[in-house]
C-alpha cells in the first residue's frame, strides 16, 4: 500500500511541477517572441500527443493524419467567416466530422499493413489537399482555393481570438485535455488492447481482441483531438491555408516529435515536441534565419539516432537513467545502513 502511494506521488508530482511552470511562464516571460515560440511548441505537443494514440499506442503509422488538422481548421474557419455559428461550435462540428471521416477512410486502410498503410493515409491527405485547393466557391461562400480563408481579426473570445498570453493558456488547456484523454486510454482496457495490437497484430487477434474495431476507435479519437487542436491552430495563424493545415511535412514532423520523444508513452510526444521546438528556435535565434532549416536537419538526425540506438525515445532514456540513479542511491543507502 505504501509503495503504491509513493508511485502515485512520483507520477503526479513531476507533471504538476511542469504544469505550474507552464502556468507561470507567460507571467515570467514578457518578450512576445518567446511567448510565441512557447505557444507554437504547445501546439506541436498537442498534435504529437493526439497522433500518439493511433501512431504510438496502436502502432499504426498513419502518416497522413495532418488531414484532420485541416478538417478542424476549415470547419471552424467556415463557420466563422460564413457567419453560420461561433467557431467554438465549428470546432465541435470539425471534431465530429473528423471522427466520422476517419472511420470511413480507415476501414479500407486498415486492411493494408506497414508501409502500404502509411502510404494510403498519405494518399487521402493529398486527395484532401487537392480537393480543397481546387474549390474557389461553395455556392456563395468563398473558400478561396489555394489562397485559403482569411479570418478577420476581432480579438473577441467568442470568435476564438485572444491576446498572445491568453492564447498560451488556451493551447495549454487543449494540451491538458489531450494528455488526459491519452492517459485515460493508456490506463484502461482500450490502451492495453491497443498496445497489444501495436506489438503483434496477429497474436492479439487470436487472443480475441477485435483488432479492426479498436484500431478504428483509436483512429477516431486521435483524429477528433487533432481536429480540436487544428481549429485552434488555424485561428492562431488567422489564415486557413491548404498548404499550411493540410501539409504532409507537418504530418511528418508530428510523427518525428512523437518517435523522438518516445512513442506509446504518455509524456514522450510532449517531451519530443518541446525539445525539438526548442532546438530549432535556439538555432534560428543564435545563427540567423538561414540556419532555421539547419535546425530542422537536426530533427532528421535525431530521428535516425533514436530509431537506431534508443527505440524508447528520449522518455525511455530518461526513465532508464532515473532508474539507474535510483538503484544506485538505494544500494548506497543499503551499504550505509549495513556499515552503521
Amino acid at each position: 500500500m505504501m509503495k503504491r502511494e509513493m508511485k502515485l506521488n512520483k507520477g503526479i508530482v513531476i507533471p504538476a511541477v511542469c504544469l505550474l511552470f507552464a502556468v507561470a511562464f507567460p507571467q515570467i516571460v514578457t518578450q512576445k517572441y518567446v511567448l510565441q515560440v512557447g505557444t507554437t511548441m504547445l501546439f506541436f505537443a498537442c498534435f504529437a500527443s493526439a497522433w500518439n494514440i493511433i501512431g504510438g499506442y496502436a502502432g499504426q503509422f498513419a502518416l497522413g493524419n495532418g488531414l484532420y488538422i485541416g478538417v478542424g481548421a476549415y470547419a471552424a474557419g467556415i463557420c466563422y467567416v460564413g457567419g453560420f455559428c461561433s467557431p467554438w461550435i465549428g470546432m465541435l462540428i470539425g471534431m465530429v466530422v473528423s471522427a466520422l471521416l476517419s472511420a470511413i477512410i480507415s476501414r479500407p486502410c486498415f486492411r493494408l499493413s506497414g508501409t502500404y498503410f502509411a502510404l494510403s493515409t498519405v494518399a487521402f491527405l493529398y486527395i484532401g489537399l487537392y480537393i480543397v485547393s481546387s474549390i474557389q466557391y461553395i455556392g456563395d461562400f468563398k473558400l478561396g482555393a489555394t489562397m485559403g480563408l482569411l479570418l478577420p481579426y476581432t480579438g473577441r473570445w467568442q470568435d476564438m481570438q485572444f491576446e498572445k498570453p491568453v492564447w498560451f493558456y488556451v493551447v495549454l488547456g487543449a494540451l491538458v485535455i489531450i494528455v488526459a484523454v491519452s492517459a485515460w486510454i493508456k490506463n484502461h482496457r482500450m490502451g492495453y488492447y491497443l498496445m497489444a495490437i501495436g506489438s503483434d497484430q496477429d497474436a492479439s487477434s487470436t487472443t480475441g481482441i477485435n483488432v479492426v474495431m479498436y484500431k478504428t476507435y483509436a483512429q477516431m479519437i486521435s483524429s477528433a483531438l487533432m481536429a480540436m487542436a487544428g481549429s485552434l491552430y488555424g485561428f492562431y495563424l488567422l489564415t486557413v491555408m491548404p498548404t499550411k493545415v493540410l501539409s504532409y511535412t507537418l504530418s511528418l514532423e508530428i510523427m518525428m516529435y512523437c518517435v523522438i520523444g518516445g512513442k506509446a508513452t504518455l509524456w514522450g510526444p510532449v517531451i519530443g515536441a518541446m525539445l525539438m521546438g526548442f532546438i530549432s528556435e535556439f538555432m534560428r535565434t543564435r545563427m540567423g534565419a538561414s540556419a532555421a532549416s539547419l535546425g530542422t536537419v537536426f530533427y532528421g538526425i535525431a530521428l535516425i539516432l533514436v530509431v537506431r540506438f534508443a527505440p524508447g525515445g528520449i522518455y525511455g532514456l530518461l526513465t532508464t537513467l532515473t532508474d539507474k540513479i535510483g538503484g544506485k542511491l538505494k544500494k548506497s543507502a543499503k551499504v550505509m545502513k549495513e556499515e552503521a
Binding site: S113, T115, L252, M255, M256, S293, Y299, G300, L303, I304
Partner: peptide, 19 residues
C-alpha cells in the same frame, strides 16, 4: 517489413530536403 527502416528513410528525406 521493418518500421524502423521506414522511419530512418523518412529521416534521411527530411535531412536532404532541409540541407
Amino acid at each position: 517489413e521493418s518500421l524502423d527502416v521506414m522511419l530512418t528513410t523518412a529521416g534521411i528525406s527530411y535531412i536532404i530536403y532541409n540541407l
